[in-house]
Design a protein around this nucleic acid. Structure first.
Length: 526
RNA sequence: GCGCUCGUAGCUCAAUUGGAUAGAGUAACGGACUUCGGAUCCGUAGGUUAUAGGUUCGAACCCUAUCGGGCGCACCA
């Protein structure tokens, strides 16, 4: 809708006009501060310019009124325009708000190590990434969702050790010497039992089989993670394993040329040229590659696959890593501007008002699956999607679990359910409703209609600004308007019943479309 | 110490990215319908936007300094 209006204004005035929401809806549907920015170059007061522009509009198809107020220009849309746009939206169903944006994007997110099930901290990145995925696809982008599996390195060795020790301790009753760092949790004792069934108890004692067991366990755990993700409606297109990349190492090294050098038996890259504190080791003295090496090959592979744009969603604790990867991408001969790294800030937990630290060793990890079981996928997704991802956020554990009717997701779902109830209750048939013209609406009804029709702009804005929380914010506002309208206006039996039901159908459409982009079910009954 | 980042109502978060009177939820208090679903609605109260300067028609947003929190500063991933 906004695009149509903006395009109309561009034709008419010959420059791009920024359209905003007016402070007060009684001013009109849209407003622009354009006169302020023109004031300087025209050397006239904003008021005069605004008046001049406003008076240049006569009767036309889109606006019924164009007024200047204190330098702002306010536009009021015509009923014909709004009704035609609403009818168009209803006939397009859940394609409402979709776009024809061009370009392919590789979106990498979650990428949690396959050493344990997802905990609540992972949920934020998963929900945020998946919401961006859904928004982008709705807008027309060709997006591939990818999970990078760190299946090489120390943590895999540690997994093998932990698995054997866990089995020997809990299944074989041996007293074992736990190392400094190790994994623990219910999933490990389950896996140990499987080891005994599949490989025999001896496998738990044979140190030479640690690697084999670790790799076997890694696949099992990845399957757990995939299940965890599926339980919150998150699905990936591709999984890329770190271990599978190292065959490419020599070729990738050669590609980086003299940006790589040897020093004291180690191989380093000149990442300090890109704002990194110092150059980074990529191959140790003993020939083992570092984590960065894997990421360099991975990003080389990403760019060789030829996407138009790349988005990585990382936890904020990796922010120091951006310079290194940018340096590597550049050394490989690619444009680092194509790689966009979005940081999802830490989720910190409170218990009884005190900071609560999840610890794998102490067994105090709060699993995402436990929270999903407690509050459900819809509530969890709405909660995480509602938070702007670049601010750290705190959750009280008890509050997290207590979230019931106080959770805004139910407020929004209730709005949708109310509309469905009315539609079911009314004796009007769909044809009559659709044929009604949305003319002569009250100010409240007009405001509700306009709000519901804003969805496409919200989707576009939420994706392009990478701020997914704008969608839940919008849905909450739309639901609030609906509830208020419902309270004030009796619909069934109203002389304008057909008209009002059509209006409510538009609201329901926006709610349902918005929900589906959040991976949440729009309920007809609650 | 250096780098990045954040600081908005008691709490959790917004603010159309520099625009009109800084808004929601929640907690507190008070109220509403014998009526389409009370998981609702309305009201009261709550703010020197961490602090001090600066930039301009205009600042929560940009610049500088200070204070405070988070994260990073590995040959771990």
């Amino acid at each position: 809708m906004k695009q149509r209006v903006a395009a109309f204004l561009r034709d008419k005035l010959n420059y791009d006009v920024i359209l905003e929401k007016p402070r007060d809806r009684s001013f009109g549907h849209f407003a622009t501060p354009i006169a302020f920015s023109l004031a300087k170059e025209l050397r006239q007061s904003p008021m005069t310019i605004a008046q001049e522009i406003a008076s240049s509009f006569g009767e036309d198809a889109i606006f019924t009124a164009v007024e200047s107020v204190q330098g702002y220009i306010n536009f009021r849309l015509s009923e014909t325009f709004l009704d035609e746009y609403a009818s168009w939206a209803l006939s397009h169903g859940d394609q409402f708000g979709s776009g024809d944006k061009k370009g392919s994007i590789l979106l990498e997110f979650v990428s949690a190590n396959p050493t344990g099930p997802l905990h609540i901290g992972h949920a934020r990145g998963a929900v945020y990434g998946d919401t961006m995925l859904r928004l982008g696809r709705h807008l027309g982008y060709d997006i591939t969702a990818e999970y990078y599996v760190n299946d090489a390195g120390n943590q895999i060795d540690l997994l093998g050790v932990s698995l054997q020790l866990e089995g020997r301790s809990s299944l074989l009753g041996e007293s074992v010497q736990w190392p400094e760092k190790y994994y623990r949790g219910e999933y490990l004792s389950d896996l140990a039992k499987e080891v005994v069934n599949e490989f025999g108890a001896d496998a738990l004692r044979d140190e030479s089989r640690q690697k084999e067991l670790a790799l076997w366990a890694k696949d099992k755990i990845l399957a757990l993670i995939v299940d965890d993700l599926a339980s919150v409606q998150v699905h990936f297109d591709t999984f890329v394993g770190e271990a599978s990349l190292y065959d490419e190492w020599d070729r990738v090294m050669a590609k980086m040329g003299d940006s790589v050098y040897l020093s004291e038996g180690k191989t380093l890259i000149k990442s300090s040229q890109f704002g990194d504190d110092h150059d980074r080791v990529v191959v140790r003295e003993d020939g083992r590659p570092t984590y960065l090496a894997g990421d360099i090959i991975y990003h080389n592979q990403k760019f060789e696959r030829g996407f138009d744009h790349y988005i990585n969603i990382w936890g904020a604790d990796h922010h120091g890593y951006i310079a290194r990867v940018n340096a590597a991408v550049s050394f490989l001969g690619y444009n680092p501007d194509k790689l966009e790294v979005l940081l999802s800030q830490m989720v910190s937990l409170l218990k009884d008002g005190e900071p609560f630290k999840m610890s794998k060793r102490a067994g105090t990890v709060i699993l995402m699956s436990d929270v999903v079981e407690e509050i459900g996928s819809d509530a969890l997704r709405f909660m995480f999607a509602s938070k702007k991802c670049d601010t750290a956020l705190e959750f009280d554990i008890e509050e997290l679990k207590r979230q019931d009717s106080s959770n805004p997701v139910y407020y929004v779902q209730y709005a949708h359910a109310r509309i469905q109830t009315l539609i079911a209750k009314s004796e009007m048939d769909m044809e009559t409703i659709m044929a009604a013209k949305l003319h002569g609406l009250s100010a409240d009804a007009d405001g509700l209609l306009f709000e519901a029709l804003l969805l496409p702009e919200i989707i576009d804005d939420a994706f392009e600004s990478r701020q997914a929380q704008k969608l839940p914010d919008y849905l909450k506002a739309l639901a609030a308007k609906l509830h208020k309208f419902y309270y004030d206006t009796k619909i069934i039996g109203n002389e304008d019943e057909a008209k009002l039901l059509k209006l409510l159908l538009v609201v329901a459409l926006s709610l349902k479309t918005g929900f589906s982009l959040l991976g949440i079910e729009a309920k007809d009954r609650m």
